[in-house]
């Protein structure tokens, strides 16, 4: 049993990033869009951890903790904003949030 090579982790990380980005672009529900952003943050975590193991430095592990903590704070404010949005308009569909136009 050999260990998993670095490239596999990096590929997984970039795949997660791509999936998150696709969700951000394609999905119409605001919550799912936000989940896409969270996936992208976790892709960064995955990459940090993979490099941290490959280079035998612990700072990457610490970085992942920072990202998790910040993502939690972001979610708290973001979900509050979405609640305000639902109260005002009764929808979470991003296509219907279009009062401000060019």
């Amino acid at each position: 049993m050999g260990s998993v090579p670095l490239a596999h982790y990096l590929a997984l990380g970039s795949a997660l990033f791509a999936v998150g980005f696709a969700a951000l672009l394609v999905r119409r529900n605001a919550l799912v869009v936000f989940m896409g952003v969270e996936l992208m943050l976790n892709a960064a975590n995955m990459t940090f951890l993979a490099f941290s193991r490959a280079h035998q430095t612990m700072s990457g592990q610490a970085a992942a903790f920072f990202v998790i903590a910040v993502a939690a704070a972001e979610a708290a404010v973001g979900l509050a904003i979405m609640i305000a949005l639902v109260r005002n308009r009764n929808t979470l569909n991003v296509d219907e949030v279009d009062t401000l136009k060019y």
Partner: peptide, 10 residues
Amino acid sequence: TTEAAFKYFI
């Protein structure tokens, strides 16, 4: 305001 905040947040 909420729409602006939502867009800014995302």
